[in-house]
Amino acid sequence: MLGAGSVILGSSEDTAHLLASIVAAAADGGSIEACARTAVQELRSTHSPVPGVGHPLHRERDPRAEALLAYAESLGLRGPHTRALAAVVDVVPEIYGRRLVLNVSGAIPAVLLDAGFPARAMKGIPLIGGTMSLVAHLLEEQVTPIGFALADAAEKEVDYSGPTPS
């Protein structure tokens, strides 16, 4: 939660805006695939990352994204935004020269947009998962305390770069 910012929270919002723009462009007469290709080419031309793909840990597949998309499909929530997401994932290797795995920050906004959730509110959604993770950590800390070990490790690895306290 303390690491929240453009990467942790912003990626879902950026993905939502990307998918919404692809769906809107397709509604004006293009195919979702062609509109996804154009959108990803525009990102590449500005040296921008593609939101919703790539992950430092999940390099082959993100099981969280797969589970969410499968669950949404079982509920009948596969709509234009999840199709746009699939089109983005499909075209990335051709345009960026390497495969980037779909990540959960891509799946979450695709499913929520198809369910009618507003794109502008997307940045707050990852806070729900982060809050639940903190609750789980609090419970775990009662059984297997690691707080002092974490604080000690952080103190050894991270140099304070702020103003000198007076």
Rank of each mutant, 00 (worst) to 15 (best):
A107M: 12
G130A: 05
A121L: 10
I128R: 00
V143S: 09
G10C: 00
L9A: 11
I128G: 00
V91S: 13
L100F: 13
P49H: 07
D152P: 03
A16C: 09
V104I: 14
S133V: 06
I22C: 04
G3M: 12
M132S: 10
L43T: 00
L127C: 14
I125R: 02
R64P: 09
V40F: 13
S6Q: 09
D152Q: 14
A87T: 03
A24R: 15
E33A: 08
V7T: 15
P80K: 13
G10F: 13
M1Q: 06
T164C: 05
A4G: 12
R37N: 07
P80D: 06
L75E: 14
A26G: 06
H55F: 07
E66T: 15
A121Q: 12
R83N: 04
K156H: 14
T38W: 01
D114Q: 01
L127I: 15
F117R: 04
T82Q: 15
V101I: 02
I8P: 00
A72F: 04
F148W: 03
P49F: 08
H137S: 05
V7K: 11
P165R: 08
A136W: 12
A20E: 14
P118A: 05
P109K: 01
V92P: 13
C35S: 14
G5D: 01
S166P: 13
G76V: 04
L139G: 07
L150A: 06
L68Y: 03
A26P: 06
L77C: 06
A84C: 05
G76H: 11
L138D: 04
L127Q: 09
A110Q: 06
V143E: 10
A107I: 02
R37K: 14
L112C: 04
A20L: 15
K123C: 00
A87K: 02
R59V: 10
V91E: 11
P49R: 11
A65Q: 08
L150G: 00
Q142S: 12
R78A: 07
I22T: 03
M122L: 12
H17V: 07
A72H: 08
G97L: 10
G76E: 01
E94H: 10
H17L: 10
E155M: 05
V88E: 05
G147P: 04
A87S: 09
S11T: 15
M132H: 11
V89I: 13
V88T: 04
H58Y: 15
A115C: 03
T131V: 09
G30S: 11
E13G: 02
R78D: 00
S45M: 10
S161M: 07
E42V: 03
L112S: 01
A110F: 01
P109N: 06
A34N: 15
T131N: 02
L102T: 10
L57D: 03
L57T: 11
M132G: 03
S105E: 15
R78H: 08
S166W: 02
F148A: 09
D114F: 08
I22S: 01
I32W: 04
Y96R: 10
P93M: 06
A110C: 03
S6P: 01
V101D: 00
A151Q: 11
A25G: 01
E66N: 06
T82A: 12
Y96P: 13
N103E: 05
L100K: 15
E60S: 11
T15N: 04
A25D: 14
A149V: 10
G162L: 12
A39D: 06
R44W: 14
G54N: 08
N103P: 02
N103K: 06
L127K: 05
R61V: 06
